[in-house]
């Protein structure tokens, strides 16, 4: 088997002949990797997922999952993937247990096996005590967990998670992170997730792709992406008003020195190592350091660097907008 679970080449989706939602994207996801898809609203994240999970047909290009072509072998793809959608798709009038069995039936899993798997999965997502309650009575977190259980019923090799922690409280979000880590560790599952939360992508994902306006702008590990910004920022202030730019620039790791409002902004790799070197070099020349701070770039800076700071009011597709409104309405109860 190939080392890649998901491969996309020139994948493109055009709606109504003119609206380019996804524009010739290429990427690949290694086996057992957690791959994060980041981007502003309307960037093409959900459209990409919908193509990969065979709900939408690509207009151009191709993609394969576990070697199966998403357009030509869509049935094989469907058998080997699991999907945890953004919306709460479980039927409110049915119980949690009935919902899981319904999902199992959609995969044609025999009742003998599905009842056993359902029991295991309910235990995994800690819903066993509520399995015979109607989903109507479930909280947002419980519903999210139920969706996860449904997505795992066919024991997928690749799991797709669309905004898995959207609208969850801190506790449930932490629990969801643990489930995701466990799926990778225990079952060697490949996970493809989209998210808006950068700290989530940083904590979970092995690699991240940032997508905007239907194009992938950058792909890399969280560390690579953060390093691509040019390293940490050390801010230094000294007592006397003399220019130390030349002095600092000569030091190892230092990339750029800028004087701003009486203090110096120093861009450097390995800030923890460079900062003591700076203090020492300055002291040798008789300067007194009055203030020093070290800032590590977060994915926030990376994200804003690549996608710009302007707010996105891009038109969302009617479907997802409605789903979101419904979710908001439900959460109010």
């Amino acid at each position: 088997m190939s080392e890649y679970s998901i491969k996309a080449e020139g994948l493109t989706k055009v709606f109504n002949g003119s609206l380019v939602a996804v524009d010739h994207i290429d990427f690949s996801v290694k086996n057992g990797e957690i791959f994060g898809f980041l981007g502003p609203n309307g960037a093409g994240k959900t459209t990409t997922i919908n193509m990969l999970i065979t709900v939408l047909k690509p207009t151009e290009g191709k993609a394969s999952i576990l070697g199966y072509d998403i357009a030509k072998q869509n049935n094989e793809v469907r058998y080997s993937i699991g999907v945890v959608p953004q919306e709460y798709t479980a039927d409110e009038d049915l119980t949690g247990y009935e919902n899981i069995l319904l999902c199992a039936d959609l995969y044609g899993i025999s009742r003998k096996i599905s009842t056993k798997r359902a029991a295991d999965l309910l235990k995994l997502v800690e819903l066993t005590a509520f399995k015979d309650k109607k989903v109507q009575t479930f909280s947002g977190g419980m519903r999210r967990r139920l969706e996860l259980a449904c997505g795992l019923i066919n024991r997928p090799k690749v799991l797709f998670l669309d905004e898995p922690t959207l609208g969850l409280d801190v506790q449930t979000r932490a629990a969801t992170w643990n489930y995701i880590k466990m799926l990778k560790k225990e079952f060697g599952m490949t996970l493809f997730m989209t998210t808006h939360y950068l700290e989530e992508a940083d904590a979970l994902c092995d690699r991240i792709a940032i997508i905007d306006h239907g194009k992938i702008i950058v792909v890399g590990t969280p560390t690579e992406l953060k390093d691509s910004l040019g390293g940490d920022i050390i801010t230094v202030a000294i007592k006397k008003d003399v220019d130390i730019t030349g002095l600092v620039e000569k030091l190892e790791h230092v990339k750029e020195v800028k004087k701003e409002n009486g203090s110096y902004m120093i861009k450097s790799e390995n800030g923890e190592v460079t900062a003591p070197l700076i203090i020492e070099a300055l002291r040798k020349e008789g300067h007194v350091v009055t203030r020093l701070s070290l800032t590590k770039p977060t994915l926030n800076e990376v994200y804003l660097q690549y996608t710009g700071k302007s707010m996105r009011d891009a038109e969302e597709s009617g479907d997802s907008l409605h789903a979101k409104r419904m979710m908001m309405a439900r959460r109010r109860h």
Binding site: Y79, I81, P85, Q86, T89, C103, L106, N154, M326
Partner: peptide, 15 residues
């Protein structure tokens, strides 16, 4: 079914 995402969910299964 469409608005609540169930239709998409079902479409991603081999049904």
């Amino acid at each position: 079914d469409r608005r609540l995402g169930f239709l998409n969910k079902a479409l991603s299964t081999p049904v």
